[in-house]
Amino acid sequence: MSDYSVSARDLSKKFGHGHHAVQAVDGVSFDVKKGELFGLIGPDGAGKTTLFRLLTSLMIPDSGTAVVEGFDTVKDYRQIRRIIGYMPGRFSLYQDLSVEENLKFFATLFGSTVAKSYDSIKPIYRYLEPFKKRMAGKLSGGMKQKLALCCALVHAPKVLFLDEPTTGVDPVSRKEFWEMLGTLQEQGISIVASTPYMNEAVRCHRIAFVQNGKVSECDTPENIRRRFPHAILAVKSRDTFTLLQDLRKFPGAHSCYSFGNYQHLYLHSGGGAGDAADRLRAYLEDKGHHDISIQPMEASIEDCFMLRMSKEGGRYGDV
């Protein structure tokens, strides 16, 4: 047995034919270690969901292989279906069954019972227990996610696949949710989760950027941040709208993106950030900006993501 829980090798999947063909997954390879919390980060339409379908044996790849806990997703799909838990992107439980009934249903499907797996779902189920008679359709968004996670866990799987589990959920519930994933991972479950939220990506042990069906970088968030090639200045002024345009025209600017109230300016390599900050202040004052604030900063995962999007996607570069 290898140390890997999930191994994908050159996975490819195309939809449609001819001019309208879309290469949803394009030669993807990566490994997820046993007991690891692995994140797939990418924009909508990057191919994350298709990747999940391939890994969970719901779809047969055009080429390449995927192995989950030593089982091939095509040949050994029966074994795989016993040991994985999958939580699709959309809330997909029975709205007209109660919390309890949904759990019982999924436990029965996997030949288990709620009582048998109560211990493993308890950390999450305790949030839901007060509402166990309530219909799933009447739960709040956060509660629905917790129920879906419970249902994916109710047969004590070895690997958990979570497709954008926190999309459409409030920030508090999202935080809670990731804390639960941490607890599960401590119990030894390998978890593969996708998310479009960068602040969640740092909670993963390792992440992979997915873009246009390809995995472009795969490492720990820390290493990815460390490799960021540019010095960054966070800039704010009173006139946010023209600021972004002016920053992009600044000599020495590589690119610039909005992050809330601040604009992140990525500088071409060469020359210290402190030196550049002075030059930038003079430049912006010259352009008529007021209340200028400039701070050098460390790269965040989001910076890495934005830069990557602009490099390969093109689409995000002009924002």
Partner: peptide, 13 residues
């Protein structure tokens, strides 16, 4: 359409 079929498909039923 609801997505529950996918949940069932991924189970050993």
């Amino acid at each position: 359409e609801l997505g529950t079929l996918e949940q069932i498909n991924v189970s050993p039923v």
